Simulated assay, not measured.
Amino acid sequence: MRSWGGKIIVGLLGFLIGGPVGLAIGVLVGHFLDRGVERVRSFNPFRPYRAGEREQIQEALLSAVFSIMGHLAKADGRVSEHEIGHAEAVMSRMQLNAEQRRQAQEQFRLGKQDDFPLDATVSQFRQSIRHRRHMILVFLETLLQSALADGRLSPAEERILLRVAEGLGVPEAQFRQILNMLLAQAQFAGAGAGQGGAGGAPSRPSLSQAYQVLGVSDSASDQEVKKAYRRLMSEHHPDKLASRGVPEEAIRMATEKTAEISKAYEMIKESRGMR
């Protein structure tokens, strides 16, 4: 429904001040105000969902994630058993049912095709979620986690993900920030699991890795560290993700990192003597 409040109110004010000429100017100004209000409403990430919209978003997310995951797997020329195994592991972590798994496998296969329409797929997904920023970030983080499954990001994978980020309206600087934090979280989790330790013994994650997990430098103030921690935990809190329309399958993926974030924060607190 088109808004008329700005035209009426500003038009009447214009008439009282400048007569008929003021009325015309006021209506014109009110017209632009109403259009601005409509734009804000159209981009509101917290507006109520229409009937069936959540299901459509869930389908759009799973379709885009697994097709682009297949495209990433083919980026270096061939799809390895490790990459197929990782895609299956993601399906398990998302707890997809039998039909969802079948659809995900089909999308992964389509993504491997030489003529896969990457840009069109990203554009369609962006339209489906109606500019909900949180959905965009969860989507991009899920793809980055998939690409980083082997602990590195190849140049071909990076080029694809940069195209995805651009198509989603995510600036390259923000993409790099998310990438660096996910790399740090993967390394932090790996060290805690015993990777890289001498003779297979568990190795303690480094303090510098802990700062990277929170996305702050070791010169940050205590207040800045707390603010970064609270922001990250808020962004990945299951209840908040659910309230913003993120499907349960993606929430399961996005919230796994909260353990690493908390662990990194506790390490920094201990080193600083923070309360």
Rank of each mutant, 00 (worst) to 15 (best):
E157N: 06
F116L: 08
A193E: 13
G200T: 10
V213K: 10
G197M: 05
L183D: 07
I178H: 12
A149V: 10
Q195D: 10
E172G: 04
Q113V: 04
A147V: 06
P205T: 07
L118H: 06
V170I: 15
R176E: 03
V138S: 12
L182N: 15
A198I: 05
R130I: 01
R109Y: 03
L118D: 08
A186L: 09
M91D: 01
Q107Y: 04
G111P: 01
A120P: 03
D218K: 15
S154N: 03
Q95R: 13
A228E: 07
K227Q: 14
D218E: 15
Q127S: 13
L162Y: 01
T142E: 03
V216R: 06
F175G: 00
Q103T: 08
G215E: 11
N180E: 10
E166Q: 15
A147F: 00
L143V: 10
G190L: 09
E166I: 02
E157G: 04
F116K: 07
E166C: 05
S146N: 10
E224S: 14
F139A: 07
D150V: 03
L179K: 08
G197N: 09
Q105L: 12
Q174W: 04
A228V: 08
D115P: 02
M135D: 11
A156N: 12
Q107C: 00
G194K: 12
D218H: 13
K226E: 15
V170K: 04
Q124F: 02
R130W: 00
S219W: 06
R204C: 04
A98V: 12
V213L: 12
L148R: 11
G167C: 01
L168G: 08
A228K: 08
Q174T: 10
A193I: 05
Q113K: 14
H134N: 07
L148E: 04
K226N: 14
S92E: 15
A120M: 11
E99H: 11
D218V: 10
S221M: 08
A147G: 06
Q223Y: 01
Q174A: 11
A156T: 06
F116H: 13
Q195T: 07
S206T: 15
K226T: 11
G215Q: 12
F188L: 13
R93P: 00
I129W: 05
G167F: 00
L96P: 02
E88W: 02
A89H: 09
Q177R: 14
L143S: 10
R163F: 06
L118W: 08
I84V: 11
G190K: 14
Y229E: 12
M135V: 09
Q124M: 04
S206C: 04
Q127E: 13
D222L: 09
